[in-house]
Design a protein around this nucleic acid. Structure first.
Lengths: 203, 203
DNA sequence: GTCTATATTTGGATAGAC
DNA sequence: GTCTATCCAAATATAGAC
């Protein structure tokens, strides 16, 4: 194994990765405190005892930091939905998927902004950072499929209603549960309309 | 009448108001071209043949310009829903209200961001600018009331589904109609669930 | 890998002449 | 009411010494 042949290089890589992680953690903190768009390299460096310029040894630009945050957040969501217990009842599976998504959306306002609101001028997530986002959306698609819902229109309606709940909650009552508390009822409404009741309708 | 006593002062006021309007029009243009957050006083002045500093004779700050844009946009929406023809069928009234709202949301991405996404760091609309926004929302509430829908939960669900359609459309397919085209179907789904079927349920 | 020094850009806002 | 002249602040990013 290469690891045992050259332990010094490994320790360096570990240190490097640890510092990167530390920078990202500080970035989230600062974003929560001052707003996502107000994240500044100076402040970020200061928080971890560095000059702003030294951060460039870890990230080539500020947008690269946003990109890493974007990727990590989507990966977090993906892991959560993947870790969900398998249910016999497909509706229960969809309900859990929705619950996890909404909880994820309202836990952190800045994370929500970064992932779903494109509020940073000039920042466009990289395709790699997108991967987990697409995969997470795909879990919702599968949960819908398990309920016999296959039409593209129905999937689009699902993203609209689930996304709408999160958006209203964060916009009008951040930290509360006035809208996300409607999840179960909205789910019932949705299924009553879009779920096929006979085998034929499933196609 | 004061107007005929001192016509000079009137002409000045008119000129002043016209210049303010010109500035705001240029602000919308620039925002569409470069992004809402990238609106800069220099560019704005340049567009109307002025130095940036001269703009301060018309607006005390950049945020005041955003505020005027915010107010004007909400007023525009309010006028549109108010101008809607009276319908005998309350469901038709709700449908038209929704249609106008969605059309308004997708017509301009930057207007949508300004009104519904709070994407400008440090900008908080003034209470006066809010007035029309609240009034516009109130027209939706009345349209729902006419359909016999009175519960707060049901009103919240309405803002979630209608807002969700606009949000998904703008986020994933700006300029298209993949989501807003679902409006009628979503409305049916919503009414089937929330509209009382008997007089008693209406309370 | 971190620093100092600095370049560069950007952009909001004020003072005072005309 | 518009200008010139500035100021001031913030923030990204690079060069090069240590």
């Amino acid at each position: 194994m290469i690891m045992s042949v050259n332990p010094i290089r490994d320790r360096r890589a570990e240190r490097y990765a640890a510092t990167r992680a530390e920078i990202l953690a500080a970035a989230w903190e600062l974003a929560e405190e001052k707003g996502l768009a107000s994240l500044a390299m100076r402040d970020l460096g200061a928080r971890i005892g560095m000059r702003a310029q030294s951060l460039y040894a870890y990230f080539p630009s500020k947008n690269a930091i946003y990109d890493a945050m974007f990727a990590a957040a989507n990966e977090e969501l993906l892991q959560r939905v993947k870790r969900l217990p398998k249910t016999r009842d497909p509706v229960e599976g969809l309900r859990l998927n929705l619950r996890v998504f909404l909880q994820f959306c309202v836990e952190s306002l800045v994370r929500y902004q970064l992932l779903y609101q494109r509020s940073i001028p000039g920042f466009e997530p990289s395709p790699e950072a997108y991967r987990a986002a697409i995969e997470a959306l795909d879990t919702a698609r599968h949960a819908l499929l398990a309920c016999g819902i296959t039409q593209q229109k129905a999937l689009d309606a699902w993203t609209a209603v689930s996304g709408g709940l999160a958006a209203q909650q964060n916009a009008n009552e951040p930290g509360g549960e006035r809208w996300i508390g409607l999840a179960d009822e909205i789910l019932d409404m949705y299924l009553a309309h879009y779920r096929p009741t006979t085998a034929e309708e499933t196609q």
